[in-house]
Every structure is written in structure tokens, then in C-alpha cells.
Design a protein around this nucleic acid. Structure first.
Length: 289
DNA sequence: CCAATCTTTAAAAGTGAACG
DNA sequence: CGTTCACTTTTAAAGATTGG
């Protein structure tokens, strides 16, 4: 198909590509990534000119690389990565009979390649890109979040529920049903006619899941509520943790307790999973006469 | 046994691309 | 053309709870 690009497009693409290249590490960027970035910048589909585009990318890549090398040699730091295409092991037919093992083989190959064979058959492979902007992105995200929470104040309470699932996969995942669970599906059929009618009682809900429980004193101090359902409590805890950024940055599954939380968890840090366990001891059933 | 609640990580599977 | 790679997307798991 269109084997060639109109000069105009070629020029504009080149500019974009150069831009992308200048913003990335030549040693880590991949042609694919560049094409992707390019596609993101234009409105229509580039797949028709994929090959041409790739060619163009290679062209620009080589040029920029040469330039960079020249510049680097200037003073610099050991041109270690000179030949970007170093690593590669050429499968050497490692009996990859099973496709399943292919992945495992890949790792194996890495080891194997250490032999001496250094054909460097992959000139342009360039591997992946560490995404330098990812860092800033992350930081920005964090900063935004911090600002946001600050601005919103802790008044969020139960209201702010929009939350940002950040697309995640929860939605889709949910659809998939967890395991087979077989046929005992219970029959939650009638729920429709049962409480559908406004259900003035908030506690109704199907199961006793949302039943209100009395909270222990430390928990009350922490959340400022005397009664909450378990899920709500968990939610509130997380909100609190996030507001104050109590998650351990190195391991976000760990939460560093502040004073109030220490009153509840009795320790400096707590695993997010253990959290529920400990929380269970802070719930007391409401005994209504 | 499953319902809502939260999150993070790790790993698998899947997809597209490129080299020989 | 086929195989392997690198990257991307998806999923599961870990933890507790109550009531039907």
C-alpha cells in the first residue's frame, strides 16, 4: 500500500519523531513506542503507512543517534551503550518445542546468551523505555492528590464518593465473575420486590453486611463517628490514610500509623490486610432491645 | 457460599513487531 | 513465514466481616 509518504507528511512526522526522540533515551526507546507517540499526535490512522513510518523513524533515529554520539563523545561519560543493539541471544533453537515455555525460555536465554556469543543481531531493538516522564507524572499525580486533599479538606466525609478508579480494571473484572462458584447460586431472585420500595431502613440492604456497628473509642477518635458499617469503616480508614499519605512509599501495602491510628492498631506500621483483622476487634454489635 | 469495601502487586496471558 | 521479544492488558490474591 501507500509505500511512500507525501513530503509534507514526512516533514511533519519527522518533526514529531525528533521531538519524541529528543525527549527520550535513545538506548531505551523503541520504534514501537515512537510510532505510538506519533500516532497519538496525529488524528488519523497511521497503520496504512506503518512501514513507511517505521522507515522514517529508523532514519530519524539513526540521525539523532549519530548526533548524540558525537555530542556525547565530547565529554563524557563513557559511551557505554554505544552499540545499543548489544543484548540478544539468538534463540539458537533451544528446543522451544512448547509454546508455553517460551516465556521461561526467554529468561533462560538471557542466561545462556552470556556465553560468548555476542552477535548483537538486534540493532534497533533498543528495548523499552523507562519513561522518564513517568516520574514526573507520578510526582505530579501525587502532588495533585495532596493538593486536592488539602483543598477539599477532610470534609469529604461520606459525600465525596466519585473516587477515581483510574480506569483500573475493576469494572471489567467484576463482570467476569470470580471463580466458578457452581450452581448453588442461592436465589437472590426476589430482592427486587422485597425492599425495592425505597426501603426506608438503610440497614436493610440484603445481607447484614451494612449493619451498623458501634465503634471502639480509638476508632471513634480516628473517624469521628460512633457507628458505621464495616465497609464504610474500611472506606473511611482508607480515606484517612490517603489524606495524610500514611502509606509507606516503598511498600504501599504498609501503612504507617500516626497517633490516632496507633491507638487503634497499636503498632507503628500495619499491613493493609491485617488492618481488617485488627479492625474487627473494634466493632461491637449494637444491642437494640 | 456470597454479598460490598478497600488497595497493591505480581504474574499471566495476549498482542504487535521485527529479525533471519 | 515463523519464532521470539518487548510491551500491554487482565486477573487473581490477600484479609476480615454478617446474615440468609
Amino acid at each position: 500500500m501507500a509505500s511512500e509518504l507525501p513530503p509534507a507528511q514526512r516533514a511533519s512526522y519527522s518533526a514529531i519523531i525528533d521531538d519524541i526522540l529528543s525527549a527520550s533515551d535513545l538506548d531505551t526507546i523503541s520504534a514501537k513506542a515512537i510510532r505510538k507517540g506519533l500516532q497519538a499526535k496525529v488524528d488519523y490512522d497511521l497503520s496504512q503507512q506503518k512501514d513507511s513510518i517505521t522507515e522514517l523513524i529508523m532514519e530519524r533515529f539513526n540521525k539523532v543517534q549519530r548526533e548524540r554520539e558525537a555530542g556525547a563523545s565530547d565529554g563524557a561519560v563513557e559511551p557505554a551503550p554505544t552499540t545499543n543493539g548489544t543484548a540478544h541471544a539468538k534463540h539458537s533453537h533451544t528446543g522451544t518445542t512448547n509454546g508455553e515455555v517460551s516465556r521461561a525460555v526467554k529468561r533462560k536465554v538471557e542466561d545462556v546468551d552470556e556465553d560468548d556469543d555476542q552477535p548483537a543481531p538486534r540493532p534497533m531493538k533498543v528495548k523499552k523505555e523507562p519513561k522518564p516522564e513517568a516520574e514526573s507524572d507520578e510526582q505530579i499525580a501525587r502532588r495533585l492528590q495532596a493538593e486536592y486533599s488539602k483543598g477539599a479538606g477532610r470534609s469529604t466525609r461520606g459525600g465525596g464518593a466519585p473516587s477515581q478508579p483510574s480506569k483500573k480494571v475493576l469494572g471489567a473484572k467484576k463482570e467476569k465473575k470470580p471463580k466458578k462458584k457452581s450452581a448453588t447460586k442461592i436465589h437472590s431472585d426476589d430482592d427486587s420486590d422485597v425492599n425495592t420500595s425505597s426501603a426506608t431502613e438503610k440497614t436493610a440492604s440484603k445481607g447484614g453486611f451494612n449493619k451498623l456497628l458501634n465503634l471502639s473509642e480509638p476508632l471513634q477518635a480516628l473517624l469521628g463517628e460512633t457507628q458505621l458499617s464495616r465497609p464504610q469503616t474500611v472506606k473511611r480508614i482508607w480515606a484517612y490514610v490517603k489524606e495524610r499519605e500514611l502509606q509507606d512509599p516503598s511498600d504501599k501495602r504498609e501503612i504507617r500509623c500516626d497517633e490516632l491510628m496507633r491507638g487503634v492498631f497499636k503498632s507503628e506500621r500495619v499491613n493493609m490486610f491485617k488492618m481488617n483483622k485488627v479492625l474487627a476487634q473494634h466493632f461491637f454489635p449494637i444491642e437494640e432491645a
